[in-house]
Structure formats: C-alpha cells, structure tokens
Amino acid sequence: MRRVLLWASATIGAATLVTFPYWTAEWESSRFATTVLRDILVFAIFALSLDLLVGRAGMPSLGHAAFFGAGAYAAGVATQRLGTDQLPLTLGAAAFVAAALALLIGTLVVRSEGIFFLMLTLAFAQIVFAIAFQWTSVTGGSNGLAGIARPFLGGIDLNPPERMYVLVSATFLAVVLLLRAVAGSPYGRVLVGIRENERRMRALGYDTARIRLSAFVLAGSIAGIAGALSAYSLRFVSAQDVGIGTSIRAFVMVLVGGAGTLAGPVIGAAVVLYVERILSSAVPVAETVLGLLFVAFVLLARQGIVGIGGAAWARMRR
C-alpha cells in the first residue's frame, strides 16, 4: 500500500514537473520561471552525471565540463553542418562524441586517484578548452556557435519554449530514473566498493581501472546530453561551456547539494542558478556568494544540504 502511494505521488510529481509551462501559463512570470526551471534541470542533469563520479565512485573530476562542452558543440555542429534537425540524431551525436572523448581522457586518467585525478582531469579539460577556443572553423573560436536551431522529434517542432522545456524535463526524469537504477544495481554497489576500498576490490577480482573508466564514460555521455540540451536551450555554445568555470559550477552544485545522493545535485543546481539568475539582480556579487557557499560547505557541512536535512530529520524523529 505504501509502495503504491509512493509511486502514485512520484508519478504525479513527475507529471506536474513536465507540464509546468502549461499549468502556469496564466502566471505573469510563467515565461521567466519556465526558462529558469529549464536551465536548472539542464544543470541538474550535468551535476547528476558528475556526482556519479564524485559521490558514487569517488572520482573527483574537475574537468567534467569537457564532456558538457563536447556534447554542446556536437549538437550544434550536427544541426548546422550535417543538415539534420532530428533530435535522436543530434542528441545521439552529442552523447557519442562526449563518450568518445571521455574514453580517450579516461584511459589516461583513471589509474590516478584523489588530488592527482583531480589535477589531471583539470589539465585535460583545459586542453579541450584550448582546442575549442582555437579550432575556429568548427567551433567558431571565441565567437562560439550562435543561432543553433532547436531540433524536431519526428514531425514535432521543439522550437516553442514550452516544448523545449518538456524535452529538458523529460530527459531529466529519464536521467534520474537511470541513475537511480544504476545506484541500486550491482554495478552501483561495485562503484561504492571502489570508492571505499579500491585495493580490496582488486583483491576480490574486480578490474577496478576498467570499471572506473566505464563510470567515467557513462558520466561523460550524460554530461554530453546535458551539454546538447544547453545548446538547444540557449541556441548558443561557447568555449565557456568547456571551461574550468563550468566544471567548478558543477562541483559547487554537487558539494552544496550533497554528494552521493540523487536529490543533492538537483538541489545544488537549483541553489546555484537561483544565486546566479535571481539573487544576482539584487546583489551584484553572485560569484562571491557562490564562493562563500563553497567555503562554508567544505568547512562546515561536507554532506551538503541533503546531509543537513537528513540529520535534522533524524533528530526530529527521535
């Protein structure tokens, strides 16, 4: 009975999320709210993919934007050059390119751990940034790619903002379901085992380097999908999307929200975009607020908002 109730409320919640622009159509700020929510969800997907590495497998990547950006560029180039506007093709291209890049970089970095892994991912992402910045004929260099057309799904034009929103929110739900399944699967437990004691995992017969690589590629391709959604949403891709700033933002989201949980990165994405989009119009020091948040959570609440909430909930029930 309790299970049925849980599923029912989850389904209602999901439907409410996906139809947001339709039931808020009468609101004065519906357009704005839809846009902000859309961007939150894009970044939530990105942060969730990073958390698969950081929170689940214990691989602190500071170069995750490389795959977000690769997906964004791939989607942009696919629509502009390949003459197709079919969503499965462009989104598939984004996921594929990001996964291929993750395979390449991952092969070189997965044997390192901790701070070394972090520095190596940062360094490789900077190389990707430099390529994006200088390969003008494909990426548009410092101008980026502007005017990216939104795709079609069969005969459905996804150009109208509310449809674009539905695409993003539906993808978000799919990614949440996927990562939830992964977290509960044998594979998810293996990742936790590697995070907690890689040496023992090797001694148990797990090829941990390859498993870490598989997580890196999976996370990279999901980040690529987030990047593609960002490219469609904003109709624009720039080298910033591959830059260290984007990697850091995702890391802030994961850390502030709470690593190793599904809700954490989503809450983190909401907090960061609230600060950047809404608070920044009131106080022009959004970066400082983010920096302070980051410092505060590292020092005081390493478990993030979800961790604080969980502890408070446990206290209340006692």
Partner: peptide, 27 residues
C-alpha cells in the same frame, strides 16, 4: 588549518576562496 592532510577539501576550499577574491577585485 582544520583541513590538514585533506588535499581534496583544500582544493575545493581554495577554489571557493579564488571565486570570492576574483569577484571582489571586480567590485
């Protein structure tokens, strides 16, 4: 001082500091 030996946390913390410093320079 309280992050002694915790390299990852040091990295995250100092990234936060750099965000603050650079933004405040702009202000």
């Amino acid at each position: 001082r309280r992050l002694r030996g915790r390299h990852l946390d040091q990295v995250l913390l100092t990234i936060g500091v750099s965000l603050i410093v650079v933004d405040q320079i702009g202000v």
